[in-house]
Design a protein around this nucleic acid. Structure first.
Length: 456
RNA sequence: GUGGGUGUAGCUCAAGGGCAGAGCGCCGGACUGUGGCUCCGGAAGUUGCGGGUUCGAAUCCCGUCAUCCACCCCA
C-alpha cells in the first residue's frame, strides 16, 4: 500500500487551513489592488533555460527539474522545471508581451513556487509567494510605493512590530571596495557579512579567513557596521540619517556607492508620506542571496522569526536577459512569504475568531426515506434565502443527526418530521443554547437568520 | 548538505527482552422524535518498512523511509 502522506515538503490543505490561507491572500490581494497592481498568473512549469543562471549558484541547485519524456527519459536530462520564484517568470512575460503591456506595468501574483530544499520549520518545497512588481521605471517612487504596499498589507493583517531592513547593492559595492575587497570577491564577502547577526563578529572574521579574504578588510567592515549600529542607537530621532552619514564617510568617492547612497536618501525622503514611514531602517549588513538585484534591496523582519517575512529589491538587468542584446527594462519588486506570515499569525493568535466558524448556518435533518424530498425542498428554499445549508444525507436516527450537526459546529438544526410535515411547520433548534421553537415553514429562513445573527 | 530526537489503535501517549495497554474519538445500547452529562457493551494494531541477534524483539543491532529540532541556506 502506498504511503498516504504527501510527498516530502508538500502539504495538503484541509478546510480549516484553507480558510486561514484564503483570508491572508484576500487581505494581501485587496491591498495590492488598492495600489493599482493588476493580477497575473504564469505556468507552474517553465523551460529550464528560462530559470537557469538567474538565481546564483545556490539557486540553480534548488530548482526542481523535470526529466525529458519519451525516448529521452533515460538520459536524466531535464528540459523543463517548476518555477523557483515569481520574478523570473514575470521578466519572461514582460519581455514576451512588451509591445502590448502598458509603459509602466504593475502586477501582483499570488501563486506557489517550488524549491528542492530540505523542509524545515516554516519552510516547504512548495510554498506561496505574494509578489508585487512595477516594471518600466527607474524612479525611487516605485520603491517607495512597493514598501508602502507591503507595509499596508502587513499592518492590515495585524502586524505592528515589523521593520523593513533597507540597503543598496551599489552601496555594498562601495563599502567593499573602500574596505579593500577586490571586485571578484564581493560575493564571498557579502555572504559572510550577511551572517553577522547569527554568528557574531568573530564568526564573520572566521568566514572571511575561510573564503580567502583579507582579514583587515573584514575588520574595517565590521568596525563600520558596529559604528553604524551604535550611531543608530544613539540618534533615535534620525537613525537612518546617522547611518547614511557614516556610510558616506566610509565610501568616499566611490562612484556607484555615492549613487546608491543618493538613492537611499531619495527613498527615505519619499517614505514619510507612505504607509512604510515608521518601518524603514537602513541596515548596511543586509545583502540578500539572489544574484539579480541591482539597486535598493529590502527585507522584512519581525522579532520572533529567524527568517524574513518577505523581501525584494530592484533588478534592472533581469528583463534584459530575455531581450535582444543590450536592451533593458528596469524593474523593482517585493515578495511576501505567505507561509511565514501564517506561521507567525498562528503562533500569535492573530486570526479572527470568525475564521474558525462552521461550514453551514443550518443543517436540515431527514426523517425517513419518504421525507427525503421534503428535506431537500426545505434546504433549497433556505439556500434561496441566502443561508448556507447542509442536508444530512441519510435517514439516520435523529440523535445521530443532531450529534453530527453539533460535531460540525453547525449552530442550527431544522427538523422536519412527520408531525411538522403534516402541520406545515418546521422545528428549529439552536444547538448552542438548546432552545427549540416550531415555526411555519415560510418563516424558517427568517428565524434561522435571527438565531445565527445574520442580517435579514 | 551536517548533527541530534521521535515513529506503538483514528488522535495523544504508556509498556525498555517474557500474553500490546490507557485516555480521547468511533460504533452499539440504556433513551424506537433530539447533540452536550452519566452508565454499560463493542470494534479496532504485521508496534513505519526491511534485515540481523535471541528459545523469545515494540524493546537490542544494522539499513531504510517518514517526521521534528538545531545548523547551512532561504520566503
Amino acid at each position: 500500500m502506498p504511503s498516504t502522506q504527501p510527498a516530502r515538503g508538500m502539504r495538503d490543505f484541509l478546510p480549516a487551513d484553507l480558510r486561514r490561507r484564503a483570508f491572508v491572500i484576500d487581505v494581501i490581494a485587496r491591498v495590492y489592488q488598492r495600489y493599482g497592481f493588476e493580477p497575473l498568473e504564469t505556468p507552474a512549469v517553465e523551460n529550464i533555460e528560462t530559470l537557469l543562471g538567474k538565481y546564483g549558484e545556490e539557486g540553480n541547485q534548488l530548482i526542481f527539474k523535470i526529466l525529458k519524456r519519451g525516448e529521452h527519459a533515460a538520459s536524466g536530462q531535464a528540459d523543463l522545471a517548476l518555477r523557483y520564484d515569481l520574478t523570473v517568470p514575470l521578466a519572461r512575460v514582460v519581455a514576451e508581451h512588451r509591445a502590448t503591456l502598458p509603459k509602466f506595468f504593475k502586477r501582483y501574483q499570488i501563486q506557489p513556487v517550488w524549491r528542492a530544499d530540505r523542509p524545515a520549520r516554516g519552510r516547504f518545497r512548495e510554498f506561496y509567494q505574494c509578489d508585487v512588481d512595477a516594471i518600466g521605471s527607474t524612479s525611487l517612487m516605485v520603491e517607495a510605493e512597493l514598501c508602502a504596499a507591503a507595509s499596508e498589507a502587513l499592518t492590515t493583517l495585524g502586524f505592528a512590530d515589523f521593520s523593513i531592513r533597507l540597503n543598496h547593492r551599489a552601496v555594498l559595492d562601495g563599502m567593499l571596495s573602500a574596505a579593500g575587497v577586490v571586485a571578484g570577491q564581493h560575493g564571498d564577502a557579502l555572504v559572510a557579512l550577511d551572517k553577522l547577526d547569527k554568528i557574531g563578529r568573530d564568526g564573520v572574521l572566521k568566514e572571511f579567513e575561510a573564503r580567502g579574504l583579507a582579514p583587515d578588510s573584514g575588520e574595517r567592515l565590521l568596525d563600520l557596521l558596529a559604528r553604524i549600529a551604535e550611531a543608530q542607537a544613539s540618534s533615535l530621532a534620525d537613525p537612518n540619517g546617522a547611518a547614511l552619514h557614516l556610510l558616506a564617510e566610509f565610501v568616499g568617492t566611490h562612484e556607484a556607492g555615492l549613487r546608491g547612497l543618493a538613492e537611499l536618501r531619495d527613498l527615505l525622503a519619499l517614505a514619510p508620506a507612505t504607509a512604510a514611514a515608521a518601518h524603514l531602517r537602513i541596515d548596511p549588513s543586509l545583502a540578500r542571496g539572489l544574484s539579480y538585484y541591482t539597486g535598493a534591496i529590502v527585507e522584512i523582519a519581525v522579532p520572533d522569526l529567524a527568517g524574513s517575512l518577505g523581501g525584494g529589491g530592484r533588478y534592472d538587468g533581469l528583463v534584459g536577459m530575455f531581450l535582444e542584446k543590450g536592451a533593458q527594462i528596469p524593474a523593482c519588486g517585493f515578495s511576501l512569504g505567505l507561509e511565514r506570515i501564517i506561521v507567525v499569525m498562528t503562533e500569535r493568535g492573530m486570526f479572527p475568531a470568525s475564521l474558525a466558524g462552521s461550514s453551514a448556518d443550518v443543517m436540515v435533518t431527514v426523517w425517513n426515506a419518504d421525507a427525503r424530498a421534503a428535506s431537500l425542498a426545505l434546504a433549497h428554499d433556505l439556500r434561496a434565502a441566502g443561508l448556507r445549508v447542509d442536508v444530512y444525507p441519510e435517514a439516520d436516527k435523529l440523535g445521530k443527526q443532531m450529534k453530527y450537526a453539533a460535531s460540525r459546529d453547525i449552530p442550527v438544526a431544522a427538523i422536519l418530521g412527520d408531525d411538522e410535515v403534516a402541520t406545515g411547520m418546521v422545528a428549529v433548534k439552536d444547538l448552542r443554547s438548546g432552545a427549540q421553537v416550531t415555526v411555519p415553514r415560510a418563516d424558517v429562513a427568517a428565524h434561522v437568520r435571527g438565531v445565527v445573527a445574520l442580517p435579514a
